[in-house]
Amino acid sequence: MSGRTQARACPERTCVGCRERAAKSDLLRIVAVGDKCVSDPRGTLPGRGAYVHPAVVCLDQAVRRRAFSRAFKSAGPFDTAELHKAVADEAEATP
């Protein structure tokens, strides 16, 4: 045997809100479209992405510490009103 495991490694990303590492599939990808932050659940929108847990707490922390400006490597501020609504709706739908 070569010593390799049969299961593929799951890619990990860091939440820009709480700074914890988690599986990429557990986080929500955020991209900048103009001056707005938009969620990218399929991960197909072009541009740099930032990852955040789909929780209002992590999103609030990311906004408070201006993490999106650093993650997108562009001057902020970014409009996150629609993003807050989307994350809140997703949090309610998840049991």
Rank of each mutant, 00 (worst) to 15 (best):
T14N: 01
E90P: 00
P95V: 07
G47M: 08
G49N: 05
Y51T: 04
P54H: 08
T94G: 02
D40L: 05
R64G: 10
C18H: 00
K24R: 13
L83Q: 04
V87I: 15
L83T: 10
E20P: 00
A22P: 02
E20F: 00
P77H: 09
D60K: 06
V16N: 03
A9L: 13
V33M: 11
A23Q: 14
A22H: 13
A67I: 06
R48P: 11
G17K: 01
K36M: 09
D26T: 14
L27S: 07
A9M: 10
V63F: 08
F68G: 07
S74G: 13
D26V: 10
A50W: 06
D89Q: 14
R70N: 08
E20M: 08
R4M: 11
A23R: 15
T94Y: 09
C58T: 01
K85I: 08
A32D: 03
C37R: 12
R4F: 10
R64S: 13
R21G: 10
A67P: 02
A75I: 13
A71H: 04
V52T: 11
K73L: 14
A50R: 09
D89V: 12
R21I: 04
A91V: 02
A81L: 09
D40T: 04
F78E: 06
A75T: 15
R29A: 09
A86T: 14
C58N: 01
A7S: 14
C10D: 13
A75D: 15
P54Y: 08
A93V: 02
K73R: 15
P11R: 11
A22E: 14
S69V: 01
D40G: 02
C15P: 02
S74F: 04
M1K: 06
F78R: 03
P41S: 08
A50D: 06
C10R: 15
A91L: 08
P95W: 06
K73D: 15
D60I: 00
P46G: 11
V31W: 05
A22W: 03
A32H: 05
P46M: 04
V52Q: 03
D79C: 10
A55S: 15
K85L: 13
V87E: 07
A81E: 14
V56T: 11
A50N: 03
D35I: 06
R13N: 03
R70I: 07
F78C: 07
A86H: 11
H84V: 02
A23N: 13
V31Q: 07
S39Y: 10
E20I: 00
S25G: 15
R66T: 07
A62D: 04
G47L: 11
G34P: 05
A22F: 07
S2T: 15
V56N: 00
G49K: 05
V63D: 14
H53I: 02
V33Y: 01
Q6T: 11
R13G: 05
K36F: 03
T14M: 12
S39A: 14
A23C: 08
R48V: 06
F68M: 10
R70C: 02
K73I: 07
C18I: 00
C15L: 01
V57R: 09
R64P: 00
